[in-house]
Design a protein around this nucleic acid. Sequence first.
DNA 1: GCCAACGTTGGC
DNA 2: GCCAACGTTGGC
Length: 156
Amino acid sequence: MAFWLFKTEPGCFSFDDLKNRPDMTEHWDGVRNFQARNFLRDSIKPGDLILFYHSNIPEPAVVGIAEVVRGGYPDFTALDPGGEHFDPKASPGNPIWYMVDVRYREPLRKQVTLEAIKGHPFLGDMPLVKRSRLSIQPVTAAEWQTIRTMGGLESP
DNA sequence: GCCAACGTTGGC
DNA sequence: GCCAACGTTGGC
């Protein structure tokens, strides 16, 4: 079981939006970055846990926890010529892009802001701090527990 | 809305 | 295979 951080712009898709999906579950599609794709395709497995992060807002923050309910499979939105995630190089035989399914789990009691993460001595090596643009990032067990605690949740 | 960082593309 | 041009992300 592994830990991840998934970023999303809440104006596009928020943690509450996930909560309001049927079965609180949604496809995590549209990722078009190769490093993030590799995580989706190769490493992210059902049962893994996700820090749900809101980006591109005045106070970016981790707001909740989700879980992976289906591991990497081809992202069919790349095959839809009318869709905004269409990739003309993708085909059913060579999907290129992958997605997973995620399910809402629980909100943090208080959100953990990027500012707080940057200010915490244990969290300075997170890609969020060092390479902010990567939209899907691995999280260590220590980072996971630190952020859970900062968010007001008890141990796993 | 600006702009730095950085990933991708394409000419050579 | 280099690297300049370009596009995108995301903090501020």
